[in-house]
């Protein structure tokens, strides 16, 4: 009887340990598969030609595989979304955390929560039907599916994470800071912007980095609004992101073209790892 119980104890111990390390195994598996399928094409094309080549023509008679257009589009798109989304989101977060009445704050917070749960294809659909024609009309363009429309959609998509993370950070600032500032004669608004926001800056920074991660990794929504042409990026040009470059050709690709798509995914993965690293550094610094 006791022996059996002992055996079960040991078995469960091993099973739980295995479950725990499965996450580590998954990370290694993903990294391994991406490296082994992404490296060959980079070797064949040449790393400088691949990363800094300005022309992507994978189906041409003499194909060229330069992904600089995709890298720059992803960077510009993300940058644009951050430039618009962060001030907007931060202002909203401050309002909800410090200025608004409880009932209003609750309403805004609920809307933000719901926004964050809407699937990206739904954002893409609405972008396709509303934003794209609107951009075409407003700027008198032949086609409204371009980088600008993608930036607008990405902005809306990163707002929820920017707002909820910065709001949490602002709320976590000790009450004494606020009281001290108010006691010294600062107005409520001055207190919020000169004392509370600076004190919450690492949390706000975290929200920005999360926003960058979300927008650089977004595929389906931008696929539906960015026009999907491998141009060098311009605000009103149809463009292709790193994510959409992978998604759009995957279904019919073969040979070196297919391998090159895996290499693009590898580049995207490296970007994400760098963003994760930055995030970790911020959190770590904050803890100290």
């Amino acid at each position: 009887m006791k022996k059996a119980a002992n055996f079960i104890e040991k078995a469960m111990n091993i099973i739980f340990t295995l479950c725990g390390f499965l996450a580590v195994a998954f990370v290694i598996l993903i990294t391994g598969f991406l490296l082994t399928s992404g490296m060959p094409a980079i070797g064949k094309i040449g790393i400088t030609d691949f990363l800094f080549g300005t022309e992507w023509a994978s189906t041409a008679a003499t194909p060229s595989y330069g992904i600089l257009p995709f890298i720059l589009t992803s960077v510009y798109g993300t940058f644009g979304a951050i430039i618009i989304g962060v001030p907007l989101g931060l202002m909203c977060a401050i309002f909800v955390a410090k200025m608004a009445k409880t009932s209003i704050a609750k309403t805004v917070r609920t809307s933000v929560d719901l926004l964050s749960g809407i699937p990206s294809v739904v954002y893409g659909l609405v972008g396709m039907i509303i934003i794209v024609p609107l951009v075409r009309e407003a700027f008198n363009l032949p086609d409204g599916a371009n980088l600008f429309s993608a930036i607008i959609v990405l902005t809306v998509m990163i707002l929820p994470s920017v707002i909820s993370v910065s709001e949490t950070a602002i709320r976590a600032v000790p009450k004494e800071y606020e009281e001290a500032s108010l006691a010294l004669g600062a107005t409520k608004t001055e207190t919020v912007f000169k004392v509370i926001v600076p004190a919450a800056k690492s949390g706000i920074l975290t929200s920005v980095v999360l926003g960058i991660g979300r927008s650089i990794g977004e595929a389906m929504a931008v696929m539906m609004v960015s026009g999907n042409v491998a141009n060098m990026p311009g605000l009103f040009k149809s463009v292709r992101f790193l994510t959409t470059a992978v998604a759009s050709e995957m279904s019919y690709s073969s040979g070196l073209q297919r391998e090159a798509l895996f290499s693009i995914a590898l580049v995207l993965f490296v970007f994400i790892l760098i963003i994760n690293l930055v995030l970790n550094l911020i959190v770590k610094k904050d803890k100290e």
């Binding site: 996450a23 598996l29 990794g217 595929a219 998604a247 994400i272 994760n276 970790n280």
Partner: peptide
């Protein structure tokens, strides 16, 4: 710490990469 680092990494990976790796694996 190692496991937590792994789960953090997993939660940051974009879904298109999951799609690609899922296809490969």
């Amino acid at each position: 710490r190692i496991i937590e680092l792994a789960t953090e990494t997993l939660s940051g990976i974009p879904s298109i990469i999951y799609g690609l790796v899922g296809m490969l694996i």
